[in-house]
């Protein structure tokens, strides 16, 4: 069900929510968090809401969308409440903010937050430079950005390293989890030898590749070479050098990876790129600061700049 509340105020939205709950009794599910989506009003907005709805199947939540409309229009909030089939396992409140209100998202969001429940703010597009300083970031326990959506992803991820505050996280980091899991598991089996060096190959503007290199540099404490390529999207290959031979994880097509280790047959692994909703589900699973992400960000400064370019 979608209920439009044009030219409204947050207290009207609130009383409508209470009314819906009393009349339908449908909104009685346990909500575990409030997810605030901050974005510009436009085509991308629905995709973000859809991803959040899918994620709500694992994390029942109230979703508040603060959509910034035209700043030159007259000050106005257009509200919309979606429940039931139109909202997954959540309730979605879309607030379209016009004119001077576009910069006042916080004042519109605060009255609608769930009591006690943690707040997560997600910028599906280009987020603020310092998420923790943003008014809507400051009220949240977790701040999810997506460097890959920024105009200059690599510069953005490096800026995130400088401005990191516990509670920050980035979907470029979340997309790495499967890669990291495979690499960690590869070091769990014999031969147990120290890694002497590492090479990470990927697109020039792939923030995930940067973070993977940063993570390896921070944890392995060895020189990590960052190689850029134009042959495929995202991360393409990782190799860890060891005395008895290299461990290599290679994904040329963005779907299937091949893991080669000395003395063992090559193994193929399904390693497809993850959708936004998958990444979001993983992200909402934890609400405490991610220390490992922080170390990976610090690792970025240990990287040597581009040493080699492979082109198609």
């Amino acid at each position: 069900m979608i209920i439009d509340l044009p030219s409204t105020t947050t207290s009207q939205v609130n009383s409508k929510l209470v009314e819906l709950r009393e009349r339908g009794g449908a909104v009685a599910l346990g909500r575990v968090l409030t997810l605030v989506i901050v974005a510009d009003d436009g085509a991308g907005l629905e995709h973000a809401i859809e991803a959040a709805n899918a994620a709500s199947r694992e994390h029942p939540s109230r979703i508040i969308v603060a959509a910034r409309g035209s700043r030159t229009a007259a000050a106005r909030i257009d509200g919309q409440i979606r429940i039931g089939g139109d909202a997954g396992a959540s309730e979605v409140i879309v607030l379209r903010l016009y004119g001077p209100l576009a910069g006042q998202g916080k004042s519109a969001v605060i009255p609608l937050l769930l009591p006690d429940a943690p707040i997560v703010t997600w910028w599906p597009g280009a987020g603020p430079a310092v998420p923790a300083d943003d008014p809507l970031g400051a009220i949240a326990q977790r701040r999810i950005t997506d460097s890959a959506a920024a105009r200059n992803p690599v510069r953005t991820v490096r800026a995130r390293a400088k401005n990191y505050v516990p509670g920050d996280t980035d979907l470029a980091w979340t997309r790495l989890t499967n890669w990291r899991a495979q690499l960690v598991a590869a070091l769990d089996v014999p031969p147990f030898e120290p890694v002497t060096g590492a090479t990470v190959t990927g697109e020039a503007d792939s923030p995930s590749t940067e973070l993977l290199a940063g993570w390896l540099a921070a944890y392995l404490r060895v020189p990590v070479k960052r190689v850029t390529t134009t042959t495929a999207e995202g991360i393409v290959a990782v190799s860890l050098q060891r005395p008895s031979g290299d461990i290599e994880l290679h994904r040329p097509d963005g779907k299937v990876g091949t893991l080669t280790q000395p003395g063992q047959p090559a193994r193929r692994i399904a390693l497809q790129r993850r959708s936004v909703s998958e990444a979001l589900i993983e992200e909402l699973r934890r609400l405490d600061p991610d220390e490992v992400y922080e170390r990976a960000l610090r690792g970025l400064s240990l990287l040597r700049t581009k040493s080699k370019v492979i082109s198609a």
Binding site: T174, T177, R180, A181, Q182, L183, V184, A185, L187, D188, V189, P190, F192, P194, V195, L216, Y219, L220, R221, E282, R285, R286, D290, E291, V292, R295
Partner: peptide, 24 residues
């Protein structure tokens, strides 16, 4: 050796990493 081996990439605070079974 296996006992003293510390996987440098493991961090117990890393709650994202799924537990992947070893070769089997």
């Amino acid at each position: 050796m296996a006992r003293s081996w510390q996987n440098p990439l493991r961090d117990e605070r890393d709650k994202r990493l799924p537990r992947i079974a070893g070769p089997a």
